[in-house]
């Protein structure tokens, strides 16, 4: 699960370093990155936190405080949060949300696949900047949101949103299709009625065609 590019420090020319985190960033990874940083540069004092995916706001402050504790060990302070498509507040936990100069903004990290090997239960939302693979069940009312492709190898009864953030080439692959909602690049369809027999509970793939219509077709094997 440890992915080398799930954390990234952009050393700016100023007093600030940009710390990019994604849902799979481990706190220990942050500590080791900061340690490495300090080995070659001891001048900066501040961190700008950049989120590579939409954070769970109810837990964000506590997450931030944990980063604070780590940063403090390296004489750093998380002073700002970078504004981007995932962060729109004016301030978070007393820290201003700032626009980074274009040259300093990170490119979205794609193809960082998140593998989920347990059932995704009702009420749970899983998001990833990259692909998501679910090896078992996605329950009614569960939500899978990926900026890339989504693969579900069990029953899929919840909501699956691929290409989140605008990737129209993203696809959804499902082994047993019975989803409540599907979406690619924001183009969505709510599935209220039972689908035809060749699709209902069958293996399907879902994609956008040239006219940006959602297509659900049997997965030829």
């Amino acid at each position: 699960m440890m992915s080398s590019n799930s954390i990234k420090l952009n050393s700016a020319n100023f007093d600030y370093y940009i710390l990019r985190v994604t849902p799979s960033t481990e706190l220990e990874q942050i500590a080791s990155k900061l340690a490495t940083l300090r080995e070659f540069d001891a001048t900066g004092k501040y961190l700008v936190l950049e989120c590579g995916a939409k954070p769970d706001m109810s837990q964000f402050t506590s997450y931030l405080r944990k980063i604070d504790d780590i940063a403090a060990k390296f004489a750093l302070e998380v002073k700002f949060i970078a504004a981007n498509q995932f962060i729109s507040a004016d301030q978070i936990d007393g820290r201003a949300v700032i626009n980074l100069p274009a040259t300093l903004q990170s490119k979205p990290i794609l193809n960082q696949t998140l593998l989920i090997e347990e059932p995704v239960r009702s009420g749970i939302r899983i998001e990833n900047d990259g692909d998501i693979i679910v090896t078992s069940l996605v329950s009614h009312n569960a939500e899978i949101i990926a900026s890339g492709n989504i693969h579900v190898y069990g029953d899929c009864r919840g909501r699956v949103l691929a290409g989140n953030g605008g990737n129209k080439k993203a696809k959804i692959f499902v082994a047993r299709f019975n989803a409540e909602l599907i979406s690619i690049a924001g183009i969505y369809r709510v599935i209220e009625d039972k689908l035809p027999d060749n699709l209902h509970n069958k293996a399907v793939q879902i994609f956008l065609d040239e006219k940006e219509r959602l297509n659900i077709i049997p997965l030829a094997v």
């Binding site: 699960m1 985190v21 994604t22 849902p23 799979s24 960033t25 481990e26 706190l27 989120c51 995916a53 954070p55 769970d56 837990q59 964000f60 997450y63 998140l114 989920i116 090997e117 347990e118 749970i124 899983i126 998001e127 990833n128």
Partner: peptide, 10 residues
Amino acid sequence: MRGEINRHKM
């Protein structure tokens, strides 16, 4: 951002 998404890791 951590929490439920990462639980399966450890």
